[in-house]
């Protein structure tokens, strides 16, 4: 596969899908704004307590820095994952969902597929550029925004601690596990994208196939299958399979908080099964993209 061509295809995905960067940036801006509002509210409460309330700030800080250092570290880590990462994860899930659903569908609707297909690019390359964007580019971009948000957040907390006369190093930075957290932002977002891969594969297949109403088809075929399964076999295996797979996100989040990495999920058979199913869906999407004859 020609590297320049593939790089150009990735660039084209990035140009078209501004949400890759915009969505995490907007979420990040909201997070930072809420943090600032929260800090002002907290500070005004501190002021309103006054000097005669008996509340000893210095003593509070001292108690905190003398507290169990392990717990503080874990608590701060959980805070960073919970506050900075979780909303960005939710955002990424939405971005990937709508990206995959539209990426082989929108250009057929507006007929710009005729422009893409007039270029010496194989359908395999085209589809793989979309898969690479979803599984690598989007997690990396989201992680970069997460890191930037984390840095701004820590700086804001530093300012607040200083303002109240504490030591930001003792209370915050020495416990922040800064680099470990950054590593886990990248690692967990990447693993989450892989967990999502079978769903994305399904969306690409529908995206390549659907003549109209791709969203409804993507949603109602699985729901219909579940319904049929329930009526005929009185079982819910499909729903359980999907539910079990999605619940693997818990292993990832638990991993980053408890074990310092999200890779425990690699030992799950279901994880690899999901990737296989995803590959099958993607192969189907490439085939349909190649031979589908509604390009006019």
């Amino acid at each position: 596969m020609n590297i320049t061509v593939f790089k150009t295809l990735l660039l084209r995905e990035y140009w078209e899908n501004k949400s890759f960067v915009r969505a995490p940036l907007i979420i990040s801006a909201v997070l930072i704004f809420s943090m600032i509002v929260g800090m002002f509210t907290a500070q005004s409460m501190i002021f309103s307590l006054g000097d005669d309330s008996g509340f000893q700030f210095d003593a509070g800080f001292e108690a905190l820095s003398e507290a169990n250092s392990y717990e503080l570290t874990k608590g701060l880590q959980a805070l960073q994952f919970g506050v900075f990462l979780s909303p960005l994860i939710v955002g990424m899930v939405f971005v990937l969902f709508f990206y995959a659903l539209g990426s082989l569908y929108n250009d057929r609707r507006d007929r710009s597929i005729l422009f893409w297909k007039s270029m010496p690019v194989s359908d395999l390359q085209t589809v793989m550029s979309k898969v690479f964007s979803a599984l690598i580019i989007v997690p990396v971009l989201t992680a970069i925004v997460a890191v930037a948000t984390q840095i701004v957040g820590l700086i804001l907390m530093t300012l607040m601690i200083w303002f109240n006369g504490g030591s930001a190093w003792d209370l915050l930075w020495s416990h922040s596990s800064f680099f470990s957290v950054i590593f886990n932002y990248f690692a967990s977002l990447f693993m989450l994208a892989l967990i999502m891969a079978p769903i994305l594969g399904w969306l690409w297949l529908v995206s390549a196939y659907a003549k109209r109403a791709a969203f409804l088809i993507a949603l109602f075929i699985p729901l219909g299958l579940m319904l049929v399964e329930g009526m005929i076999f009185h079982s819910g295996n499909l729903a359980k399979l999907i539910g079990d797979h999605i619940s693997k996100t818990e292993i990832i989040m638990e991993g980053v908080v408890m074990h310092g990495h999200p890779f425990a999920v690699l030992s799950e058979g279901g994880f690899w099964g999901g990737l296989l199913i995803s590959a099958a869906f993607i192969a189907g999407a490439i085939y349909i993209r190649r031979f589908r004859d509604d390009s006019y």
């Binding site: 295809l9 078209e16 507006d110 422009f115």
Partner: peptide, 22 residues
Amino acid sequence: ADVAVIPRWMKVSQSLEFVEGV
């Protein structure tokens, strides 16, 4: 194949860069 099938979201400069790349 038809008029006006260059993607609407593209900038003119991007269309040049794309074709140059592929």
